[in-house]
């Protein structure tokens, strides 16, 4: 996949509409996920992370950061958790996940596909959330929810990564916007 990334064309303009749209997509997907019946209520597929994965190829770093922020705030407002402990988990998880995914995409694109990026992002997010829950909520007992939590996140991130790869190759909307100048 050839990219024409001339540093002179590095854009610092934040395409506000674009980022807001992706952020809105994240909210939408989290409600979709909410409505999917699950055998175990704690199983979070992380559909809402899809825009964060897709956005890797569409946004430059400032926009990407903004996307992550909007996703966190948006989810907090929609679920009404914005002023509780839970927002901290969302914040920690999303930030660490976005950070790792962005770095991997920027520097490791040759070695990792979106699947690997998705897995890495999910692991980073879940480990961060586990550590936070250890400090805030459970204490050392957090190690008991660690294995199932990590396993479910691992499995679902693979599915999500595969989905993202497919989307990127098939979506015309994506193709249209990926041609615009971006930095990644």
């Amino acid at each position: 996949m050839t990219r024409h990334s001339d540093s002179r064309l590095r854009s610092t303009v934040i395409r506000v509409e674009f980022v807001a749209l992706l952020a809105a997509l994240a909210l939408f997907l989290s409600t979709v996920e909410y409505l999917i019946p699950k055998p175990v209520p704690f199983m979070r597929i992380g559909l809402a992370n899809l825009p964060l994965i897709i956005g890797l190829g569409l946004l430059h770093e400032r926009e990407y950061l903004l996307l992550a922020l909007l996703k966190i705030l948006g989810q907090g407002l929609v679920t009404g958790t914005i002023f509780s402990y839970i927002i901290l988990f969302s914040f920690g998880g999303t930030v660490s996940s976005a950070f790792i995914m962005f770095l991997l995409y920027r520097y490791g694109r040759r070695y990792v596909s979106l699947v690997g990026i998705s897995i890495a992002g999910a692991m980073a997010s879940n480990i961060t959330q586990l550590q936070l829950s250890r400090v805030i909520l459970f204490g050392d007992a957090a190690r008991f929810i660690a294995p199932p939590f990590l396993m479910v996140g691992f499995a679902t991130s693979i599915v999500l990564g595969l989905f993202a790869e497919r989307f990127v190759s098939r979506s015309s909307w994506y193709a249209e916007h990926a041609q615009q100048e971006h930095l990644a």
């Binding site: 040759r110 070695y111 990792v112 596909s113 690997g116 897995i119 890495a120 595969l162």
Partner: peptide, 11 residues
Amino acid sequence: KQIRLGDIAIF
């Protein structure tokens, strides 16, 4: 789809 070396490492 193209599964790359890094994917396996991360896995």
